[in-house]
Design a protein around this nucleic acid. Structure first.
Length: 386
DNA sequence: AAACATCGCAACCGCGTAAGG
DNA sequence: TCCTTACGCGGTTGCGATGTT
């Protein structure tokens, strides 16, 4: 209830830690574990408060911490999860192995937030700040409606995901049956920090609304692309599902075909060949190529809209550097692929109306939230996401 | 080369809450 | 049931590093 008094004691050292202090803390925890943080400083011979020791350990000294640049996958994950969770850094951190909430928070505040803002994305809402510009050809109403839909879907997603999580927890005790593990067991889903021994979770029992939702748009992609496996695969995530069937969980427990994101590692290099240390260059290059010439395009793409200022005027998708590389492409790989095919005049986008931008917008919003949903689905059962 | 500005990160502060007496 | 303590979390700050003029 009350505020912690632990740091009120006079004579306790504050400020940067010295190597000697680090060594003392490290040595003590390695030998005894941290136990009670309050009692630790005295036992370890440190003139620090327990809180300071805990922070030093969790944010710096812990052996399972990865330091250095964030990969594109990590950036993508942070942005997606931030769109869903807001500033719940500890929850986000559970999906970024070896990263601390503090580090993620710092990275968001010093890099990602600024970049999004610079591109006209509201870092809080993850929506374009210049929605007004979409009023061309009367699209603004559409955009507003879809924005509300996205908000509604967000809220609904949270509720669904909460149920899923509860379901996972409930079924946790039942998952000792070998067959129950099949779906998740092959996944390299996000490791659970500090809990490497955690059992592999079961697939969610039901997500009926989401299944339908998934099924609807994924089927449409399947039809238009002649198979979605390759197109949906991103360097960050791997959707796994049966080869020819839509990636819908067709039955309850034990017969999982739920599409899952596999986190394929966040080390310095990506299996997909993504270069990690070029984020700034990539972003800047996009800004240069796209934002200056076509300020709407980047903004729109980041929000899973495939419109550009040009396409809004003409209905034709203009050249898109996103096809080549970069974070946004990773983030939005689904929408890009499809939008590209749509722009060729192919009305077979699964929506059936073939009306172009409006359905694109809706489909792309679905992609965006689906990608987040996949994160939710792949979250560890004890994830504090909800 | 020096002064100034900006950035990035480690650490601190204070609040909310769970746990225990 | 209330109070106290301890912990975890998110927001903020301070300072060294780096970049720019």
């Amino acid at each position: 209830m009350g505020r912690s008094p632990c740091c009120d004691k006079v004579g306790l050292k504050k400020g940067p830690w010295t190597p000697e202090e680090d060594q003392k803390l490290l040595a003590y925890i390695e030998e005894h574990g941290h136990g009670s943080w309050r009692a630790l400083p005295a036992k370890a011979g440190l003139q620090r408060c327990g809180k300071s020791c805990r922070l030093r350990w969790t944010n710096y000294l812990r052996p399972d911490i990865k330091r250095g640049k964030f990969s594109l996958q990590e950036e993508q994950t942070i942005i997606q999860l931030h769109a869903l969770l807001g500033n719940r850094w500890s929850a986000i951190a559970t999906h970024l192995p070896k990263r601390t909430d503090n580090e993620i928070k710092n990275y968001w505040n010093t890099h990602l937030k600024k970049r999004l803002a610079k591109m006209g994305i509201d870092p809080v809402t993850h929506k374009p700040k210049n929605d007004a510009l979409l009023s061309i050809d009367g699209q603004s109403k559409n955009a507003a409606n879809l924005s509300h839909m996205a908000q509604w879907e967000s809220a609904r997603l949270e509720a669904e995901a909460r149920l899923v999580r509860e379901s996972k927890i409930r079924s946790h005790s039942l998952q000792h049956h070998p067959s129950n593990n099949s779906g998740f067991a092959s996944s390299t889903s996000a490791p659970i920090m500090n809990k490497p021994e955690a059992p592999i979770p079961l697939p969610p029992r039901s997500l009926d609304v989401l299944k339908a939702w998934n099924g609807g748009w994924l089927r449409s992609i399947d039809q238009s692309n002649g198979g979605i496996g390759g197109d949906l695969e991103s360097p960050t995530s791997t959707l796994t599902f049966s080869e020819n069937a839509p990636p819908i969980m067709t039955s309850a427990l034990g017969e999982n075909t739920m599409p899952m994101i596999e986190f394929v590692g966040t080390s310095g290099t990506s299996e997909a060949g993504i270069v990690k240390d070029k984020d700034d260059r990539d972003w800047k290059s996009y800004e240069y190529k796209e934002e200056i010439q076509n300020p709407l395009s980047y903004t729109s793409n980041l929000n899973h809209m495939t419109w550009t200022a040009e396409s809004l005027r003409t209905g034709v998708h203009v050249g898109n550097v996103m096809a080549e590389e970069g974070f946004t492409n990773l983030l939005l790989n689904n929408s890009y692929d499809r939008s590209f095919s749509d722009c060729g005049g192919d009305s077979d986008n699964g929506g059936g109306d073939g009306s172009g931008s409006g359905s694109d917008y809706y489909e792309d919003n679905k992609n965006y939230w689906n990608s987040i949903l996949n994160l939710v689905n792949s979250s560890p059962p004890d994830s504090p996401m909800f």
